[in-house]
């Protein structure tokens, strides 16, 4: 029983990270029909920057805040430099490769800075463990999935009740129509990328105390976050968050009851199967082809 609880809670913690990353992909995709393949590196920027700032004497809160802002700025700049010039093209190769290129550069810089070592990010959330239904967890891990759900709800509030949020929805629905209504589409897209990167960097700051900050900390969450977004239906925010949480839990159960080694194989095979059955993802909207 406690083992099952352990898997569920540990799974929710890592799933919360997938959910936050996937939410970022959802925000970018909705606005631009393009994403940032270096989104995993946004996570790394957040985590690593916070670790460095804390190491050089900043307070934890301030360091994390600044790190998240830096991540947001990264997304904003990257959209302008690497995504927008290729957004109009028929295939996605352009922005895929440019964002991958930026990711390589950022990761390389981080590796040079850290020499490949991981850095700690001390946080009260990992100072001591707590017991929940017999499962041992850090408070930090309990917080992560909650934040993922809050972020999703916050996004909904933003879309419902603010001007920029409504503009985001309009752009997601129909770019040309939105432009005709006087919405600055480019601005909305840039804002969306910045917002997505804020959530990505926040995910990095949240996970860094648990997994340590390192140059490669974003690679797998980035890839899996994207897989989760596609699997959950990239057009649906609740869909990707739910799928993210579920994917984390499934991973833990595979690790627990099959083997650690089978995790990636089972996870990615599951994704392919889901896509074959639900081409638009589990919760995604089906687009009717018009001739």
């Amino acid at each position: 029983m406690s083992t099952v609880a352990q898997y569920i809670f540990s799974g929710l913690a890592i799933g919360g990270i997938y959910a936050l990353v996937a939410l970022g992909f959802h925000i970018m995709w909705s606005a631009a029909r393009a994403v940032n393949f270096a989104h995993g590196d946004t996570l790394m920027i957040g985590g690593l920057m916070a670790a460095y700032l804390v190491a050089s004497g900043w307070s934890l809160v301030l360091a994390c805040g600044l790190a998240i802002l830096a991540g947001g700025a990264f997304g904003f700049v990257l959209e302008r430099l690497a995504v927008r010039p290729f957004a109009g093209q028929a295939n996605s190769i352009g922005w895929m490769l440019t964002t991958i290129a930026v990711g390589i550069m950022v990761e390389s810089l981080a590796t040079i800075e850290t020499q490949g070592y991981a850095l700690p990010l001390p946080s009260p959330g990992v100072a001591g463990s707590v017991q929940v239904f017999g499962a041992g967890l850090y408070p930090q891990e309990l917080v992560i999935p909650v934040i993922a759900v809050i972020a999703m709800a916050g996004l909904r509030l933003l879309q419902r009740h603010t001007l920029i949020g409504r503009a985001m929805q309009a752009v997601a629905h129909n770019k040309n129509a939105a432009a005709l209504m006087g919405i600055d589409v480019n601005l909305v897209i840039a804002f969306s990328f910045a917002l997505a990167s804020l959530t990505g960097a926040a995910a990095g700051v949240l996970i860094a105390p648990v997994v340590q900050a390192s140059a490669t900390m974003g690679v797998l969450p980035g890839l899996k976050g994207f897989a989760v977004a596609i699997m959950g239906g990239i057009t649906s925010a609740p869909g990707v968050v739910l799928t993210g949480l579920a994917y984390g839990v499934i991973e833990k159960f595979v690790e627990g009851y099959i083997s650690t080694a089978a995790r990636e194989i089972v996870g990615f095979s599951l994704m392919i199967v889901v896509l074959l059955v639900f081409p638009q993802g589990l919760f995604g909207k089906r687009e009717v082809a018009k001739v």
């Binding site: 083992t3 352990q6 898997y7 540990s10 913690a13 890592i14 990270i17 041992g136 996970i207 648990v210 997994v211 390192s214 490669t216 900390m217 690679v219 797998l220 833990k252 690790e255 627990g256 650690t260 080694a261 990636e264």
Partner: peptide
């Protein structure tokens, strides 16, 4: 005998 990959975030199944 338990194994894990680089960058794995949580080892609770193995430890359990």
């Amino acid at each position: 005998a338990e194994t894990f990959n680089w960058n794995d975030q949580d080892m609770s199944p193995q430890v359990i």
